[in-house]
Amino acid sequence: MPERVNKLFSRAARFAAVGGIATAIQYVFLVLLVEVAGTFEIFASALSFTLSALVNYLLNYYLTFGGSVAHRQSLPRFTVVAVVGLAINTLCFSLALTLLPYLLAQVIATLVTLVSNFLLHQFWIYREPEWNP
């Protein structure tokens, strides 16, 4: 397999691992906010998504994409993608919540945003000036 393809698959694997960590953090906060704090489910989902986004950014910046792009370039782009992701997450969660328990609704919302997030991270947020996966 060519080196570029290997690098892309390696990056995708690290991205998935970071996403798993961020998602676990999101779900822990979601459950704590709903079950312990009694927070409204949609607000709890949005807040937990936002909190996990910070972890996602830092881990992806340093581990997945190697910090090769300055924060002044990647952070504003990540913020735009996070806001778009928050909107997608909240919309999907709200719709799914009408039919499903909140944890299953969150699973649906999480799955819907996965592919678009990777593509936006890879080709826009952390894109190196001369992209070389």
Rank of each mutant, 00 (worst) to 15 (best):
Y61I: 04
I108W: 07
V34W: 08
L59N: 02
V18T: 05
L51E: 11
V28Y: 05
N56D: 12
S45C: 10
A17C: 06
V115G: 10
I108P: 02
L54H: 13
L95A: 11
I25L: 15
Q73L: 15
A37N: 07
L59T: 03
F78N: 02
A22D: 10
R14E: 08
T90P: 09
Q26R: 08
T98M: 14
A53Y: 06
S116A: 15
S48E: 05
L32W: 08
L86M: 09
L59E: 10
G19I: 00
E41F: 11
V115Q: 08
S52Q: 07
H71L: 13
T98D: 15
V28D: 07
N60I: 04
A22W: 06
G85V: 01
V69W: 04
L103F: 11
A17Y: 00
F43Q: 13
I108Q: 05
Y27G: 03
F65M: 00
Y102M: 10
A70V: 11
A53T: 11
R72E: 09
L63Q: 06
F43G: 12
T79W: 04
H71S: 10
T79F: 09
I88H: 01
V112Y: 07
Y62I: 12
I42T: 14
F93A: 05
L58P: 06
N60M: 07
R72H: 11
G20I: 03
A13R: 00
R14G: 01
T113P: 02
F15T: 05
T113E: 06
N89K: 00
L120F: 12
A70K: 14
F49E: 05
I21T: 13
P76T: 01
A53W: 04
A22G: 11
Q106T: 05
L99M: 13
T90M: 10
L103W: 03
P76I: 02
Y102Q: 10
H71N: 12
A13H: 00
E41W: 09
A105H: 04
H71E: 09
V31H: 13
S74W: 01
Y61L: 12
G38I: 07
T98E: 15
V83M: 12
L30P: 05
T79E: 01
I88M: 07
H121S: 08
P76W: 04
Q106N: 15
L75I: 06
V36T: 13
S48C: 07
Q73G: 11
T23Y: 04
A46W: 05
H71T: 08
A96Q: 04
T110R: 08
R11L: 01
F49T: 08
A24M: 09
V34G: 09
H71Y: 08
I21C: 13
A12C: 05
G85N: 03
S116W: 15
R72N: 02
L91R: 13
L63G: 06
E35T: 10
V36R: 06
L54A: 15
N60T: 02
Q73E: 14
A37Y: 13
T79N: 06
L75V: 12
S94Y: 14
T50N: 12
A37F: 12
A37M: 14
A70C: 09
L75R: 06
G20D: 00
G85M: 07
L51K: 09
S74F: 04
L95Q: 09
Y27C: 11
T90Q: 14
R77I: 02
L63W: 15
L119H: 05
I42S: 08
E41N: 14
P76S: 04
A22P: 03
